[in-house]
Write a protein that binds this DNA or RNA. Structure first.
Length: 818
RNA sequence: GCCGAGGUGGCGAAAUUGGCAGACGCACUAGCUUUAGGAGCUAGCACCGAAAGGUAUGCGGGUUCAAAUCCCGCCCUCGGCACCA
């Protein structure tokens, strides 16, 4: 028998599929049943494709192949998210230019991606560093500018001292850089932002309409962080000024015994008030600002200092209360000032204890003097005593002249980066226009978007692309780049030298694949493009990692909403269905370079074949759960595939379709099981169902040809090469035409054939299994009970008595209760 | 601290959602075969027990004829958020 020579067969079909465009949609035919199957594209920063990528792609590809066989016109594109700090850092590390490195990585990645047998639409692949692509990334930026969604502002921002650039809030984890884990510090810098907060409410509300993995939806809800509360003004004693606070508990206003402002608050920096301990306060503020977020996260000990010489009036009870500055109040949230109610807020309680401030209970339900954060009837609250807290919230707000306010945690997306390897932000600053228009234009005078016909602003190839850490991009020292003319007055002007965040590149790439069909000639405002987008968008199935819950997946939704409101897209949600795959680990531990337990996918493809590797990855555990890769386990899959191969090669098929009802039932059950399991991404149990079927086949001398054909079809999405070879060999005419198994129709099951005529049920006495019995479909309950009672092992337990109760679960068990 | 997922043989995991716990696979044991290799085939494989039988799904209670699954109270692991007023 010919052994299965996977490397030869894989090579053959990789080529054939590419030539025959097996996995490309027919762009010229009218779209009937489209299916846009998308996986998060990789960033080719490290030493080739990571096995985690392989895991994600295989799982997505199986789904796409399944849909194709079910008659869908599947579009499954692939590309590289090659712009960005990942790739740039890698180039710096190995001492090459990122553009050079990109060429190398590109070849390597595409080769690897093809080698595992993914059914990609290769003609539409794209790379984010391709000027034809980033022309539209830049266009997107200018469109945001035109729509008032891009702006420049000086404020405290996150700065990574190692990456030497600013970062968006989403890219800081626990006070550390998401990428390099360095402690992030705060800097007061003028930067570009996207007004994502304008869509906070929509981003939140739409979550209810999309079919996504629940944990990702929750992560987004938390990140957006909607709070309903009130803005309340506290009058400063002997002054006409006020301090305004945001609170979600206006019902506790009578218990506000002091007020706290953040170190960055205007009340301090302006010093318009007669603060008597000014030096002390300044010193505290300076210290507090030095603290990194990482410090704050690790050390939550309350610190602060009173602003002496000024007081505010609690508007509820007209009592004079002190003001403190403390870094437990954040400047970026609400008004940067809070009313402190120590009796009913944990943080205020801690602070009050430490600084010996009065604690006044105003909500009943807890013990006196003990922290209580729940609801209850009001006490010590004047005319509001006895009212329930929920009701009191708005009554008290009204009473003190406050107003209801919805506060979001989400902040605007900081989009500029002081790095080299990204799309230059397509903006121009004209100093003379700025001077001229001073006062006339309120915001950002002198700034202009690069006109569309001048896009792309090409990233120049420069030798020194290393970030300087000066707060400016390396492009700021490239005169030929930044010197330009003002689009308005024609005078000397300066280009923006920062590049945009990598996440902008990936915020629209699902549209980019459709533009690639036209070689990026058209904007999404073009009619031809609109037609194509109508036909193919939104994406039908999106699969990727949960680590992008509040990064990519939030940005991409925001950009789609903006484009929708601009009239370019018909939908607000680009990914109505998203599934997060699990994490692949090795021998029970996370893979990491330092542990040296990183799996190199190439080795496995080479040693075991792509089919075995794919199938094994999917067999480990449910796809959405993750998997524990143990090399030994590969053998089980290799055996399984070898046995399928052997059965095909030996071709001992029954001449006529024998009427083995039991085997027929198993075949139909397997079709149903595999179909349902693939649909719900439970590939592991789909594979085990096919193993069971093969085990049944092997028990027979010969099986009908059709049954084997069914097994091949079911297996095709998992093992595309082996099944193709056997398919061509056994089931296709050698007529010169190529009919791929991957275009063959998916097997159908007959629901009438799912049930066996006879089966075994359990016989229980008092809920414990004592025996089992074979019954037929036609037997009545009485008959079964009668037979069961005379089974020797059951008789023994009955001991001549009649059971008190008999419970019969059809097809499962009979329980005799004594 | 909050949110989420989870805890089942030596291991990865199944269990039609309340109905025979451990499917499928790995590892292991015995036997056969052998072109002696990390090959193939057959059988066995939760635990205690000679058997009858008993005990088992993190721990402790409860509901039920019947609980891995439902309820109450704990413990542990992993992931996310983290002073958001």
């Amino acid at each position: 028998m010919k052994k299965y020579d996977f490397s030869k067969i894989e090579k053959k079909f990789t080529q054939t599929w590419r030539e025959k465009r097996t996995h490309e949609p027919d762009w010229n035919a009218p779209v009937r049943k489209k299916f846009y199957n998308l996986m998060m594209f990789p960033y080719p920063s490290a030493e080739g494709l990571h096995v985690g990528n392989m895991y994600a792609f295989t799982g997505t590809d199986i789904y796409g192949r399944f849909r194709r066989m079910r008659g869908y016109d599947v579009f499954e594109p692939i590309g590289l998210d090659g712009f960005g700090i990942h790739s740039e850092n890698y180039a710096l590390k190995v001492g090459t230019h990122p553009a050079k490195q990109a060429e190398v990585s590109e070849k390597r990645f595409y080769k690897q991606l093809e080698a595992v047998g993914n059914g990609f639409a290769w003609d539409e692949r794209l790379e984010t560093y391709d000027p034809a692509y980033y022309r539209w990334t830049q266009w997107l930026f200018t469109e945001m500018w035109r729509r008032g969604l891009a702006y420049r502002k000086k404020q405290l921002v996150n700065w990574c001292p190692s990456c030497k650039t600013v970062l968006a809030d989403e890219q800081v984890e626990g006070g550390r850089c998401e990428r390099c884990k360095t402690e992030v510090i705060k800097k007061d810098l003028e930067q570009w932002f996207f007004r994502i907060t304008k869509y906070a409410d929509k981003l939140l509300r739409n979550i209810e309409t999309i079919d996504w993995s629940e944990k990702v939806k929750i992560a987004q809800r938390n990140w957006i962080g909607k709070s309903e509360g009130a803005l309340v003004k506290f009058k400063i004693s002997n002054s006409d000024s006020y301090l305004e606070v945001f609170t979600t508990r206006p019902d506790t206003l009578f218990g506000a015994t002091y007020l706290v402002v953040s170190p960055e608050h205007d009340a301090i920096s302006n010093f318009q008030f007669p603060i008597s301990n000014k030096e002390e306060v300044e010193k505290y503020v300076k210290e507090a600002k030095k603290k990194s977020d990482a410090d704050r996260v690790e050390n939550k000990e309350k610190t602060g200092i009173e602003l002496k010489g000024i007081k505010v009036i609690n508007p509820a009870n007209n009592e004079e209360i002190p003001i403190f500055v403390a870094d437990y109040v954040l400047s970026g949230y609400g008004t940067g000032a809070i009313m402190a109610v120590p009796a009913h807020d944990e943080r205020d309680f801690e602070f009050a204890k430490k600084f010996k401030l009065p604690i006044v209970d105003v909500i009943s339900g807890g013990e006196a003097g003990v922290l209580y954060e729940g609801d209850g009837a009001l006490i010590n609250s004047g005319a509001f005593d006895g009212i329930d807290s929920e009701e009191a919230k708005w009554k008290i707000t009204e009473f003190v002249g406050g107003k209801r306010h919805t506060q979001f945690r989400l902040r605007d997306w900081l989009i500029s980066r002081q790095r080299y390897w990204g799309p230059p932000i397509p903006m121009i600053y004209c100093a003379s226009c700025a001077e001229l228009k001073k006062g006339e234009q309120k915001e950002m005078p002198g700034w202009y978007a690069v006109p569309e016909k001048e896009l792309p602003v090409v990233l120049p190839i420069v030798k020194n692309f290393r970030p300087e850490g000066t707060g400016q991009s390396p492009l700021a020292s490239v005169e030929e780049f930044y010197k330009t003319q003002c689009p308005a007055c024609g005078g000397d002007a300066r280009r923006e030298t920062d590049v945009s965040d990598t996440f902008l590149d990936s915020a629209w790439y699902y549209i980019g694949y459709l533009q690639k069909i036209f070689n990026f000639q058209f904007s999404i405002s073009n009619e031809l493009m609109k037609e194509r987008m109508r036909a193919w968008l939104p994406v039908d199935m999106y699969i990727g990692g949960a680590e992008h819950s509040v990064l990519h997946l939030l940005y991409v939704r925001f950009v789609a909403m903006a484009l929708h409101d601009a009239g370019y897209l018909e939908f607000e949600e680009p990914f109505p269905k998203f599934r997060a795959h699990g994490l692949l680990i090795k021998d029970g531990a996370k893979m990491s370079k330092s542990k040296g337990n990183v799996i190199n996918p190439d080795d496995y493809v080479k040693n075991f074949g792509a089919d075995a590797f794919r199938t094994y990855l999917m067999f480990l555990a449910p796809f959405e759960y993750g998997g524990d890769f143990r090399e030994q386990g590969m053998l089980g899959i290799t055996r399984f595939l070898d046995r399928v191969w052997k059965m095909g090669m030996e071709s001992k098929f029954a001449d006529e379709k024998e009427t083995d009802k039991k085997l027929e039932t198993v075949v139909h059950q397997t079709i149903k099981k595999v179909t349902d399991d693939i649909e719900s991404l439970q590939y592991n149990t789909a594979i085990s169902a096919m193993m069971i079927l093969l085990n049944e086949f092997e028990k027979k001398e010969a099986i009908p040809r059709e049954y084997f054909k069914t097994l091949l079809l079911l297996l095709a999405p998992f093992a595309p090469f082996l099944t193709e070879e056997l398919w061509q060999d056994l089931f296709m005419e050698k007529d010169g035409n190529f009919h791929s198994i991957h275009h063959a129709p998916w097997p159908a099951y007959d629901s009438k054939k799912l049930e066996k005529d006879s089966f075994v049920i359990a016989i229980q006495v008092n809920g414990k299994v004592r025996d089992e019995m074979e019954i037929t479909k036609t037997m009545t309950r009485e008959e079964i009970e009668k037979r069961a009672r005379v089974l020797p092992r059951i008789e023994k337990f009955l001991d001549g008595k009649d059971p008190k109760r008999v419970i019969y679960v059809p097809g499962r068990l009979l329980n005799l209760v004594l």
